[in-house]
Design a protein around this nucleic acid. Structure first.
Lengths: 346, 346
DNA sequence: CTGAAAGCGCTTACAG
DNA sequence: CTGAAAGCGCTTACAG
């Protein structure tokens, strides 16, 4: 394959001039430029970025480390990262770790060997991983954390405000006139979503009815179990907020099987906005995380570090969730009848 | 950052010896080895692969070009590619093109500049892309085509046998005793699936009833439309094969709304095995493409080219589909009653 | 078993 | 505006 020397020779100039032409650094005479362009064309010359990186100390590549690329949520983030990197002229080296400490360490190490200019990583639970990341940061390789905070690490961090997402979801139900709103949640996870639920109620001046908060597995079956329990109540809820979609779907389908009309009798809101939410019958109203935006932001954060060697204070970006309204939520029954009455009054 | 020179100096040997130690090429004395190991440890030395690639002409990176990484189907393939590449000590540079000719060309070009050792690409419809790929192949960069054949290109190719997948689906219905099997298909796509349907029937000695073949849009609504038409028949089918899941789901849900019991009255089989199939009510039996395997195979094909410079005849690997049996298919009614009769005879 | 030296393809001051 | 030369970090024959 042709090198910069071949081009220089064919154009009758020195390699330095060709290099300047290629990089737009320093002046190149009109005539030389034309001849270089012609030579490049003729030889089908393609510069070798690896060789270039040897002197510039910049590879133009970033690493993106995830635990499961096949997860649709991750895949969409990856797309956001890649698209944005591409816009800025960077390549993304993507690594899948399966949440395996060994693989993650190897990924990080290989990424360094390939001289990536920076790394975006979705959180591993792995202490060794964190230690290695700290080492990379110390060596001056910028790192951006995506999705979850990693305690001992001080660097940029981007994630989603799930607390506010829950508040938005419950507010939506409140606005529809619901005042008996149940929450299906987990014992050990998604606390901020649960907290959002409670705060939204309190904020609205409503008491939190402990019987309406059901802890369960965050699975389809967990949703079924929780709904079974809620339907046994003497005064069942008129709306249900579940901290994730799969659970919401399980609950909703169980209610349907029990003859409950949705959203006529009970409204449902889920969280995450997985594809299933859109295709459910009825389509499930859900809180969406801005996945693409998450990826974009992560790269942008990294990019400002890539472009400067000045120390930058660690930044934290928390993106808002968005409520996607579908068919599973409607005005509360009591309100409906009140509306009907008032309209018949006219 | 420490270089091989720093290591050599600290260990009191020459860089050549350190290099040999690092690569396991040529002998290194026991004593030297120990001291080199210690020096590497002490300095936290990490070799620079880009520098290495300058002499070896091998970057240890491959490129993977897709049109939409956020598509779950693609994401899973990507995972298969990355996992396998990792196993063999390669890194994957992933590029998203959105099916945009401009972006694809830039991706391919950048990949070459980064000196990837090979490229796996999911088919673009783009002539310019094909021309560029041909150029890369001519330059000795191995290319593997994944998912669809690209006419003018002669290189390795891996995909799925959707024709046989359709045959398997229909055979499954035949085995359950169905003989009036409808096919919901498209006018201009997925021909091999439709052909599989017809051949399976013919093979079983059944006539193809044209009224049972409904052309429609391959969308949820298309499925609804097709099902509406099928239910109007005086002698409706006892089973439906749809050439993709979304359509199958639309058809199935419409049938349910019309009071049809599934799989009691009608069995349904879809194609692609998307997540929705698993979570549908009832869960949809579907033909799955081996996505991970597709990615694995693509890399393996590439790998044999990576490891040799000998010319290799272009190979084509067609992976079989797999039937995932769920709740939407059951023994045909007539057969059921026959079975009941025979059992009451005893 | 090991060292000295050339070379991989590029960029970057430094002169001119 | 341009060329000569050194250097980036590594590997690879070649001697010894």
């Amino acid at each position: 394959m042709a090198t910069i020397y071949d081009v220089a020779e064919k154009a009758g100039v020195s390699v330095g001039t060709v290099s300047r032409y290629l990089n737009g650094s320093g002046y190149v005479g009109r005539k030389s430029a034309d001849r270089i362009a012609a030579a490049i064309e003729e030889l089908g010359y393609s510069p070798n970025r690896n060789a270039r990186s040897l002197t510039t100390k910049r590879s133009g590549m970033i690493g993106f480390v995830v635990s499961d690329l096949a997860n649709p949520f991750t895949a969409e983030i990856a797309r956001g990262v890649q698209d944005t990197a591409d816009e800025f002229g960077y390549c993304a080296l993507i690594y899948n770790t399966d949440g395996n400490a060994h693989r993650e360490l190897r990924a990080l190490n290989t990424l360094r060997e390939h001289q990536v200019d920076g790394i975006i990583i979705t959180p591993p639970e792995i202490p060794e991983g964190n230690a290695f990341l700290a080492e990379l940061i110390a060596q001056g390789i910028p790192v951006v954390l995506l999705g979850r905070d990693m305690e001992p690490l001080v660097t940029d961090f981007v994630s989603t405000d799930t607390y506010l997402g829950a508040v938005i979801a419950v507010d939506h139900l409140l606005e529809l006139g619901h005042n008996r709103i149940a929450c299906i949640c987990a014992r050990n996870a998604a606390f901020s979503r649960r907290r959002g639920y409670m705060d939204a109620l309190t904020q609205a001046g409503l008491d939190v009815d402990e019987r309406l908060i059901v802890e369960t597995e965050l699975t389809r079956q967990g949703g079924v179990d929780a709904m079974t329990q809620l339907l046994k109540l003497e005064d069942p809820p008129s709306a249900v907020f579940a901290v994730n979609d799969v659970t919401a779907l399980g609950a909703m389908h169980h209610a349907i099987r029990r003859g409950v009309s949705i959203p006529g009798d009970i409204s449902f809101v889920g969280f995450d906005d997985i594809v299933l939410a859109e295709y459910a019958q009825p389509a499930l109203t859900s809180v969406a995380q801005p996945k693409l935006q998450l990826g974009r932001t992560a790269f942008e954060l990294l990019h400002t570090r890539l472009e400067t060697s000045d120390p930058i204070e660690p930044r934290r970006v928390i993106l808002p969730c968005e409520l996607v309204r579908r068919e599973s939520t409607a005005v509360a029954r009591t309100v409906t009848s009140r509306l009907q009455r008032s309209s018949s009054d006219e």
